[in-house]
Design a protein around this nucleic acid. Structure first.
Length: 228
DNA sequence: AGCAAGATTAGCT
DNA sequence: GCTAATCTTGCTA
């Protein structure tokens, strides 16, 4: 454990300053780390969803709605945006920069460190069900509303480099059926074929980090290759 | 002060 | 797949 903490270094603010759709993909494979008195727990981010400001009907800050809940979204990138949903707390990373209320929901992790601690916090044994959902992963890492507004660039809650996914899938976001046209935006991203994602869904787009036999110029705007 | 809605989950049919 | 659980937020009066 001593050795692990030396190697795991928080990503700096510059990382969070990329456009939200880029950041949502860049976060895949990164290590989300939680330190606490109980010990360290961490997992690779394998699923994310982008929520993009005033124009996105599914976003809490749609129409620049600024309330006690959404306030942190108007602040600088790289802060934690936590909020309550039914009986669960959900965790987002603020993006977009000052006065641009955007955020990325972290929907699933692949458990890496502190797995026994995660099992204890969740009260279940099954590894594949430990962190395969936004409400499950915050319980595994003991993230709470107390983390609202904290910076992700330093302990006790931060994101560090992990692995580089070979392929990223994209599809519709989950659970926003009442969001009009926004419900169909392909702003959910996941590590292709990763078994820790929250839901299986048809991939509408696929992004290859290193497209086999293709130059970058063959990619569609946004770096996507259409499947259909 | 009252009320409706919700970026979910677990458990059961 | 369907539904209850459970409670905060934000909006209206």
């Amino acid at each position: 454990m001593e050795e692990i903490t030396k190697e795991v270094v928080p990503l700096t603010e510059a990382f969070y300053e990329q456009p939200t759709l880029e950041l949502a993909k860049a976060l895949l494979g990164c290590l989300l780390v939680r330190e606490s008195t109980e010990g360290m727990a961490a997992g690779y981010i394998v699923e994310s969803e982008a929520y993009i400001g005033p124009e996105d009907r599914a976003t809490h800050s749609f129409n620049n709605k600024r309330t006690a809940r959404t306030e942190i979204m108007f602040h600088h990138s790289g802060l934690a945006y936590t909020y309550l949903m039914h009986t669960h707390c959900l965790f987002n990373v603020v993006s977009g920069g000052e006065e641009k209320p955007e955020a990325i929901l972290i929907r699933a992790l692949e458990p890496v460190y502190g797995i026994d601690l995660m099992r204890k916090r969740r009260g279940i044994e099954d590894l594949t069900k430990l962190t395969n959902g936004p409400g499950k992963l915050i319980k595994s890492l003991a993230i709470t509303m107390g983390d609202y507004g904290c910076s992700m660039t330093k302990p006790p809650l931060y994101i560090a480099k992990g692995f580089c996914p070979e392929s990223i899938s994209a599809g519709k976001r989950i659970g926003i059926d009442n969001s009009g046209e926004a419900r169909d935006y392909p702003w959910r991203f996941w590590v292709t074929n990763n078994k820790f994602v929250s839901r299986h869904q048809k991939s509408e787009l696929v992004f290859f980090q290193n497209p086999p036999g293709r130059a970058d110029s063959s990619l569609l705007p946004g770096g996507f290759i259409h499947l259909t």
